[in-house]
Nucleic acid binder design. Sequence first.
DNA 1: GACGAATTAGACAATATTGTCCAAAATTTT
DNA 2: AAAATTTTGGACAATATTGTCTAATTCGTC
Lengths: 225, 225
Amino acid sequence: MTIATHDIRLASNADPASRTKRDAILDAAAAIFSQQGFAGASIDAIAVKAGVSRQTVYNQVGDKEKLFKAMVAELTQRSSAGFFRVLDTFPISPTNLQSELVDFACRLLRTYSCDPNSRWLIKLIENEASRYPELFEVWKEYGPGRKYPAIAARLAQLALAGLIELDDPILASRQFMALLTAEIRTDVLMGKQPSDAEIDRIATNAVTTFLKAFAARGHGAPGLG
Amino acid sequence: MTIATHDIRLASNADPASRTKRDAILDAAAAIFSQQGFAGASIDAIAVKAGVSRQTVYNQVGDKEKLFKAMVAELTQRSSAGFFRVLDTFPISPTNLQSELVDFACRLLRTYSCDPNSRWLIKLIENEASRYPELFEVWKEYGPGRKYPAIAARLAQLALAGLIELDDPILASRQFMALLTAEIRTDVLMGKQPSDAEIDRIATNAVTTFLKAFAARGHGAPGLG
DNA sequence: GACGAATTAGACAATATTGTCCAAAATTTT
DNA sequence: AAAATTTTGGACAATATTGTCTAATTCGTC
């Protein structure tokens, strides 16, 4: 039942007994820190949200800085795990490229933009990166440093199969993600959750444009508008 | 010398005498607030950075909340003005679409991503939007609410001239901007300023993919690839 | 140079937070 | 049930910040 499929050298603890309590604290910390910022988040508020006493926070995790780092490590792990779980469903040999890629994009959008872990993580990194450069480096290694190459590899397979045409898979992967997250960025910044229909529409738009740009010109791409 | 070309009903003050001092305060506030967050920014730090005494901050702008709102209003105005100044250089009737659009994209990238005003504003909105929903609404009206339609109108002109092919100009404008900001988002989050060469490369990549996706299929797009 | 307005440095109370300590209570283990 | 460990709630000093007040100083203007 090890969750860490792509295991990360970040969080590593024993104590299966206090796991739940520690997790509750880290969950609460993620919510409060990402909402209030590092300075604005008070240990008291986190303790209350976690349903523990303040002293327990100090016992389990340590001071504010340790708490912050432990929480970011936890979020990084969860977010990364979720991403790669979805990536495993990439349509490598699709019968209908357009529709299967749209389905994949929907799944990605759901875990990338609707999962609180990922949203919080992004916000926290954006805000406190300058305060903790080493945290930023670790995130960059496990976030963009792995996600884009992983997508690029899948796209390269499609290109090899002659389904699309690419020069630079890494660039294509970045553009794929950019198109995908283009429309929701603004809304998702607030708590707004896009509906299923909206996610579908966004994914369709992104994939359509992506396939138009990278269509295999050799044998004429099927039904693209 | 009225800067407000697309004048905004936000900041409006008289006092040309204390203008410079007030501006220094708002500048400092923008830097500190965006770096430290609302809670983490201290009035003292802002006063020091502005080169004024704390009391002057209170005299000129008011308490912390008023200072924050005034600063966001100012940034919104500056950012918007800068954007529309660049937009006026959009190549509506280009002789070489690709290269002129790349040049335009470079200019946009420079003001959109390298100008501290815009960067700070985005960060502040992202962070404190939930704290000040009314501020978020105003920004949305003057930011995305005007920028995307404005770009969409230019793209529609290109489409009308038969240079590109679009169904949904608004969607295309969002995707254009998404492709443009795809590669720098991560780096720009930190203080990192992309070099001129890098900006050029990014703009070229974005425009190339955009034109591949939206090429006029009727008379074969010129030299794309 | 003199006048009025703005600015400064610092004091000040009120408030909030951090991190520690401790004894009572609850929980888990033996 | 007894013992060991964890958790709790509150007290506590140390520190930082906010916003106000005041007296001295500087600045712009006549």
